Computed example of a mutant assay.
Amino acid sequence: MEYQGGVMASALDTVAHYFAKILVNRDSLLKAAPPSPYRFSEGFSTNLPGQDSSLSSVIILNSTPDRKKAEEEVLMTNMLDKVFAAFIKENPRAAQIYLNSAMQVSRVYPAYDVKNIVDPDIVVTDFNFYYEADLAHNPTKGLVWIQEAYVDPAGKGWILSLLHPIYVDDVLFAVLGVDYTVSELIQRYLDSLEGEFILVNAKGDIVAGKAEAIESLSMPPLKNHVYSETIHSDYFRISDFNLFNSKSQEVRDMATRFLLEKKNEFSFDEEANLSNAICLRFNAVDWFLIEVFPNY
Rank of each mutant, 00 (worst) to 15 (best):
I146T: 01
F282M: 03
W287A: 04
N273H: 11
A284G: 07
D286A: 07
L274T: 01
L75M: 15
T230R: 03
K262P: 01
W287C: 03
K223F: 14
Y235C: 00
N47D: 13
W158I: 00
V226G: 04
K156C: 05
D170W: 04
K203T: 00
N62I: 13
V292E: 06
Y189H: 13
D253F: 07
G157H: 02
K82C: 13
A133Y: 04
W145S: 05
L48S: 10
M8C: 05
G204F: 09
G6L: 04
N264W: 06
E212W: 09
P120I: 02
V285D: 00
I122L: 09
Y18Q: 12
V118H: 00
M79Y: 14
L160A: 12
T140M: 07
N91K: 13
F266E: 08
H17M: 08
S56T: 14
N283I: 04
E265R: 14
K68I: 09
V114Q: 05
Y180F: 15
T256M: 05
L217D: 11
T46P: 03
V83D: 05
A202N: 10
K141S: 06
F173E: 13
F197S: 08
R188A: 08
R107E: 13
M103P: 01
A208F: 08
A174K: 07
G6Q: 13
F19L: 08
M219N: 11
D240C: 06
V178R: 09
P153Y: 06
A95M: 09
K247H: 13
E184F: 02
E90K: 14
I22Q: 12
M79E: 15
A33C: 12
E132G: 02
K89A: 13
V207H: 01
D191W: 10
N224M: 14
K210E: 08
N91E: 14
R67L: 09
M8W: 03
P34T: 10
V226C: 15
S183N: 03
D27G: 02
G177E: 05
D113F: 02
N273P: 05
L143H: 11
N264S: 11
S45L: 09
G50R: 14
S28H: 10
G50M: 12
A11K: 09
A33M: 12
F266W: 03
A85T: 13
Q96C: 11
G157W: 02
D119W: 06
A154W: 02
N283L: 06
I146K: 12
P35K: 14
M76Q: 15
K69Q: 14
G43Y: 00
Q51A: 07
A255I: 08
E90I: 02
A208G: 08
Y109H: 10
F40E: 10
P37N: 04
A202H: 12
D134C: 04
S228L: 05
E132L: 08
G209I: 01
P92C: 03
L163G: 09
V226L: 05
T125G: 05
A272P: 03
Y18F: 13
K247G: 15
F258R: 08
D191I: 06
